[in-house]
Design a protein around this nucleic acid. Sequence first.
DNA 1: TTTACAGTGAACCACATGGTTCACTATCAA
DNA 2: TTGATAGTGAACCATGTGGTTCACTGTAAA
Lengths: 120, 120
Amino acid sequence: MVHYQARLDATFAALSDVTRRGVLEQLGDSDASITDLAQRFQMTLTGMKKHVSVLEQAGLVTTEKVGRVRTCKLGSHRLEEEAAWIERHSQLWSARFDALDELVEHLKRKEKADAPSKRR
Amino acid sequence: MVHYQARLDATFAALSDVTRRGVLEQLGDSDASITDLAQRFQMTLTGMKKHVSVLEQAGLVTTEKVGRVRTCKLGSHRLEEEAAWIERHSQLWSARFDALDELVEHLKRKEKADAPSKRR
DNA sequence: TTTACAGTGAACCACATGGTTCACTATCAA
DNA sequence: TTGATAGTGAACCATGTGGTTCACTGTAAA
């Protein structure tokens, strides 16, 4: 369970940066080298390397170096747990707001019944 | 579009802390004061206040102060966009891994055809 | 009217983050 | 063998984060 929390920590943190989300989008299209990515996001190689390391740490990306070039691709971490977490909480949200909607409806009906015409 | 990215940044960052996720769970159950939450998560009032502020900034929580106590409840931000982002990328992931699975299947079949019996 | 309680803000701390430059290694190509 | 190329690691910098303490304000209760 501790493990589970740590993984959520790492994944959400990895996703909280616009560049890293961009890298994931890119890799969804096609694999890429560090140089490719650095160029695309206008950043030094070192900077991009750090981002890739963060994504790799979170299991979102895997890399392999052959010759001088390190190729990055989407990792085996499929975001199921994160999707589940968000899904579960979306439901909580919805439930609470549905309840609120109902309350509002109820109050509206009540108001109509109490004072049928003279509301300013 | 910039706005959209900033919102994803803020939300994922807010969700990347185990205490804050805990607070959301708690508030899904029932509203709570800063004192309640600080006690539950063994933290100073000031510390909890900061977490609540981060959640509020991200729209995940709203608060209202009446008398001396500030009551916190789930906010109007329902995580739809975040769910959509993750969903979209889960699909990317799945697509790529389905392709991989197919490749593996293909190779298996090929192997069977090439060397029907003498594989060690 | 005093006292206790809930929260707030400023200041501080250690550490993480997102980026850079610079010096270096290893590989590929001429 | 000489250059160019791809990446790496250390060091640095500014800023952010997760937490604290302490001094303070405003509200409630005795």
